[in-house]
Amino acid sequence: MTSGDRFNADHLGLSLTQAERLYFQMRLIREFETTLLDLFSQNAVFGTTHTCLGQEANAVAIMEALDRNIDTVWSNHRCHGHFLAYCGKVAELFAEIMGRELGVCAGRGGSQHICWHRFHSNGVQGGIVPLALGTAMAGKAEGAVTVVFLGDGTLGQGVVYECLNLAALWQLPVLFVLEDNGVAQTTPSELVFSGNAQARAEAFGLESAYSDTSEVMALHATASDLISRIRNGGSPCFWHIRSVRLGPHSKGDDTRSPEQMAALQQRDPVRLNERLVDTPLRLEQRCKTIIREALAQAEASPVNDGSLTA
């Protein structure tokens, strides 16, 4: 990270109160993702994407509890919310997804392969988990923690269990976050999952926690508690969060019924947490402006056609 390339304090709302900040970040992520889906539906963007609509509270609660300078985040295909809550780089994420030179990876990676400072994502289910253990090991001496995100469908990957064992055995400071939205692409978890996720982690000797809420303050309290325990004790933890996916898996590929979707709306974290702030409309306007300007900035950047770099 160079001095000219810092966390975007403004887009992270660092000058706001904590409650305002968490709401603001969720709102910003929501605006980003809905704008992105619009762009895709207008064929203005090419390729694929996975939005985190409904899961924004997890991202902002966890990033708020991290030391962004030293801690590491490993995210998966559904990484935009995690990334924006980590660093606030809106234009750079738009540009990345659009394959532009301004992109965080100069447009080489795209929606699910992004990296900046100590944030990384990759699109192979479960494959990031060993890497997370590696960065946790590397950072242990400096008191750094690594967070790795998993979806419920990813509990089908064997390497996840190799890593639960090794994280506990080698006492690595890593937080496994299971964002359980109850569905993997189109498959409801009851068709592919047996037993209990927390019990699986505990069987390997990890401490575990469970949350079933979209309340961002409650999620943040748990995140802070778990992360400080990991930082101080140096051992891993597994956190099972029941969450909701309010959008399609990717783009226009939802097979769930309207009744089911209506029920899930009750858990919408942006609506639920609106009462935390006095001026939600003002923050919403602020987010819309940021998104509009960032998008314009991304669109002004040249497409990376491979002529600049090898």
């Binding site: 060993p130 890497l131 253990l133 960065t135 090991m137 590397a138």
Partner: peptide, 14 residues
């Protein structure tokens, strides 16, 4: 798989 991936993650930190 895990031991190669953990090594890669550690290596990524120099």
């Amino acid at each position: 798989a895990a031991i190669v991936g953990i090594a890669a993650g550690r290596a990524m930190r120099g």
